[in-house]
């Protein structure tokens, strides 16, 4: 398991939207994700609601349980506490915003139970 975050979460990283527009990671808005997914043939945005946040045996990690999509499928992910998720209408959020800001310089809100995160699924999945 990786103990570092991917480079694209670092403040200032250049992100290309589906229409070709370039934005910095910290400037992304909910609409950017929604519009990019609309253009995509394969991917669609799902709403994933945070149901539980539990500590993990892995140091500095948490286990987040999401309720995904209209069928409310239960999905668990283990991530580092500083891993940022994009919350609808709120923006980047992590379990430990101070650490995210310290490591990535990315401003974050606190990720809490009930938050609705942007996630992806395949359009063809039925």
């Amino acid at each position: 398991p990786s103990s570092t975050l991917p480079p694209y979460f670092m403040k200032g990283s250049i992100i290309q939207l589906a229409d070709g527009e370039l934005k910095r990671v910290e400037d992304l808005r909910t609409e950017d994700f929604l519009q990019s997914a609309e253009v995509s043939r394969e991917l669609k945005i799902d709403s994933s609601t945070v149901e539980r946040i539990d500590s993990s045996k892995t140091p500095d990690a948490v286990i987040i349980q999401f309720s995904v999509g209209e069928h409310k499928a239960q999905v668990c992910v283990e991530v580092l506490v500083e891993y940022p998720f994009f919350v609808f209408g709120q923006g980047w959020s992590s379990c430990c915003p101070d650490r995210t800001t310290q490591l990535l310089a990315l401003s974050c809100a606190k990720l809490s139970v009930g938050d609705v995160c942007i996630s992806l699924t395949l359009k063809s999945l039925r």
């Binding site: 939207l17 999401f66 239960q74």
Partner: peptide
Amino acid sequence: VPVFPWHSLVPFLAPTQSD
């Protein structure tokens, strides 16, 4: 300067299909 695609920022949370 590296450019990253938007979808790399979003977790892929695929539920296992049971039907």
